[in-house]
Nucleic acid binder design. Structure first.
Length: 285
RNA sequence: AGGGACAUAGUUCAAGGGUAGAAUAGCGGUCUCCAAAACCGUUGAUGGGAGUUCGAAUCUCUCUGUCCCUG
């Protein structure tokens, strides 16, 4: 019989942490976090990870385990998470995974194709070209060197265009040639449990959580990270807005309401992402 | 109580006799490695009533509401 991975997912602030700890205790399983921001050890106040008390109740993985100083991607998460599960499943029949990062969850469940790691230098050059010559210029180059990708990706999305270009340029093989459009085989079964709340309820929880983050010293945490503000990790709701405040672009009050708004939008995008995933069993809290 | 000003989308503000627009919020969607990212799309309003006019958000009257001044 295959071991089973139970994934608890849901929008931000819905209450995944509490629920997962209960469930993990029931299954005597550790918790594998699947959250693209809680895995940074420098980002604590603004990412609402499990508390110290909660972490003491159940062993957690991928919580404050990485640094904002290094680039991290969904691809690396897939590799690291699979390695970890390989080990943990030797002792556990069931493992609990919790998180809100849709792409990271998909990476674990279906697997990403084996693109080479992003070449930061190539990305840097492309990003500068984007600023200088505009997106259209990058689009035209993609059309030339990988027309297949030009046809299939969102060519108005600069991140995607750069991604396709950087892989093609860095490896000499077309970005589209890496795609296999096939899910990877996994050695474990997967059960997805989605948690949802009524929208007003969720929005109230989001607003409350942001107020608590401010009380807990979000501004200080963000101030301590100014040197890394250009790293992708810091391109995060709650951090961007405070950077703007520290720059004097907006008032603290504006920053707070922007954080609330952007968190609401994030929650909505999460729901959209999972909207068509028929494997998820939904549960309203 | 008297005098004055104002009333347009959830909010802030345009249009001053001729197709009611914008920003923002809200809502919906996309997604194979920066994903708390990066994109795309969209609903919605002239406070109520009467009048002038071919035609009223716009002019007149009235009611209602809000604000200011005076007592």
């Amino acid at each position: 019989m295959k071991p089973k991975l139970i994934i608890i997912l849901g929008p931000t602030a819905v209450g995944k942490t509490n629920y997962s700890i209960e469930l993990a205790q029931k299954f005597a399983s550790p918790i594998i976090s699947c959250d693209s921001r809680q895995l940074y050890k420098e980002m604590i106040v603004g990412t609402a990870p499990p508390s110290i008390e909660q972490l003491a109740l159940v062993p957690h993985y991928f919580i404050q385990s990485h640094t904002v100083k290094e680039y991290y991607t969904a691809g690396r998460y897939e590799i690291e998470a699979l390695e970890l599960m390989d080990k943990l499943f030797k002792k556990h029949d069931n493992l609990i995974m919790v998180g809100g990062a849709g792409l990271y969850i998909d990476a674990v469940c279906k697997g990403l194709d084996d693109f080479p790691d992003a070449d930061q230098k190539v990305r840097q050059i492309l990003t500068e070209r984007l600023e200088k010559d505009g997106l259209e210029s990058l689009r035209m180059e993609l059309k030339k060197i990988d027309p297949q990708s030009y046809e299939t990706i969102d060519i108005y999305n600069k991140q995607r265009v750069i991604r396709a270009l950087e892989v093609t340029i860095a490896t000499g093989k077309k970005f589209s040639s890496y795609k296999r459009n096939k899910n990877k085989e996994r050695f474990f079964d997967i059960e997805k449990l989605g948690i949802i709340r009524e929208r007003n309820d969720l929005y109230n929880r989001i607003n409350l959580r942001v107020d608590r983050m401010m009380e807990a010293g979000l501004v200080e945490e963000v101030r301590s990270l100014v040197n890394y503000r250009n790293m992708p990790a810091l391109n995060t709701v709650g951090y961007k807005e405070i950077f703007d405040y520290l720059d004097g672009k907006i008032s603290l009050e504006e920053a707070v309401s922007l954080i609330k708004r952007n968190t609401r939008r994030y929650a909505k995008r999460q729901m959209t992402y999972w909207g068509r995933d028929e494997e998820i069993a939904w549960m309203t809290l």
